[in-house]
Deep mutational scan, measured.
Amino acid sequence: LYHVLGLDKNATSDDIKKSYRKLALKYHPDKNPDNPEAADKFKEINNAHAILTDATKRNIYD
């Protein structure tokens, strides 16, 4: 999941948040209406963010 956000395992919560915002804006379906690959990437980014920002889920993942 870290690679989805372009981060390593030592990433801080701020790093995760910044990377998520940058990538979410880039791949958001509203910005890429005719690109199904961007929509899939956006879903991956959201999933990675949801797990890595939840301390319990992140510990389980790590």
Rank of each mutant, 00 (worst) to 15 (best):
1 L>S: 09
1 L>Y: 13
2 Y>F: 05
2 Y>T: 06
2 Y>H: 03
2 Y>W: 03
3 H>P: 02
3 H>G: 10
3 H>E: 11
3 H>A: 10
3 H>R: 09
4 V>W: 01
4 V>P: 01
4 V>D: 04
4 V>T: 09
4 V>G: 02
5 L>C: 00
5 L>F: 00
5 L>S: 07
5 L>R: 00
6 G>P: 00
6 G>C: 03
6 G>M: 01
7 L>S: 06
7 L>H: 02
7 L>I: 03
8 D>I: 00
8 D>M: 06
8 D>H: 04
8 D>K: 03
9 K>L: 06
9 K>I: 11
9 K>W: 03
9 K>G: 09
9 K>Q: 08
9 K>V: 13
10 N>C: 07
10 N>L: 06
11 A>Q: 00
12 T>K: 04
12 T>L: 00
12 T>P: 00
13 S>R: 06
13 S>M: 13
13 S>D: 14
14 D>H: 05
14 D>Y: 04
15 D>N: 08
15 D>I: 06
15 D>H: 01
15 D>G: 04
16 I>P: 02
16 I>R: 02
16 I>H: 01
16 I>G: 04
17 K>P: 00
17 K>V: 13
17 K>D: 03
18 K>F: 14
18 K>H: 05
18 K>T: 13
18 K>M: 14
18 K>R: 10
19 S>K: 05
19 S>Q: 14
19 S>W: 00
19 S>T: 11
19 S>H: 06
20 Y>K: 07
20 Y>N: 07
20 Y>L: 03
21 R>A: 15
22 K>P: 08
22 K>A: 14
22 K>I: 09
22 K>L: 13
22 K>M: 15
23 L>C: 02
23 L>Y: 05
23 L>T: 02
23 L>A: 04
24 A>R: 12
24 A>P: 04
24 A>N: 09
24 A>D: 02
25 L>Y: 07
25 L>F: 12
26 K>P: 08
26 K>N: 06
26 K>T: 09
27 Y>V: 02
27 Y>K: 05
27 Y>Q: 08
27 Y>H: 15
28 H>W: 03
28 H>F: 02
29 P>R: 04
30 D>H: 00
31 K>E: 11
31 K>M: 03
31 K>C: 01
31 K>I: 12
32 N>G: 04
32 N>D: 07
33 P>K: 15
33 P>F: 06
33 P>D: 10
33 P>V: 08
33 P>I: 03
34 D>T: 08
34 D>P: 02
34 D>F: 00
35 N>D: 03
37 E>H: 13
37 E>D: 08
38 A>D: 10
38 A>S: 11
38 A>L: 08
38 A>P: 02
39 A>W: 14
39 A>Q: 08
40 D>H: 15
40 D>F: 13
40 D>E: 10
40 D>P: 08
41 K>R: 11
41 K>F: 04
41 K>S: 08
41 K>N: 04
41 K>P: 00
41 K>L: 06
42 F>T: 09
42 F>C: 08
42 F>D: 11
43 K>W: 07
44 E>D: 10
44 E>Y: 01
44 E>F: 01
45 I>C: 04
45 I>P: 04
45 I>E: 09
46 N>V: 15
46 N>D: 02
46 N>E: 14
47 N>R: 10
48 A>N: 00
48 A>M: 00
48 A>Y: 01
49 H>A: 13
49 H>C: 05
49 H>R: 13
49 H>N: 12
50 A>H: 08
50 A>T: 12
50 A>Q: 07
51 I>V: 14
51 I>W: 01
51 I>M: 10
51 I>E: 07
52 L>R: 03
53 T>P: 01
53 T>Q: 09
54 D>H: 02
55 A>L: 08
55 A>S: 10
55 A>G: 10
56 T>S: 10
56 T>L: 04
56 T>W: 03
57 K>D: 12
57 K>P: 02
57 K>V: 01
58 R>S: 11
58 R>T: 11
58 R>W: 02
58 R>E: 14
60 I>P: 12
61 Y>H: 14
61 Y>N: 09
61 Y>E: 15
61 Y>W: 03
61 Y>R: 13
62 D>P: 06
62 D>Q: 02
62 D>I: 01
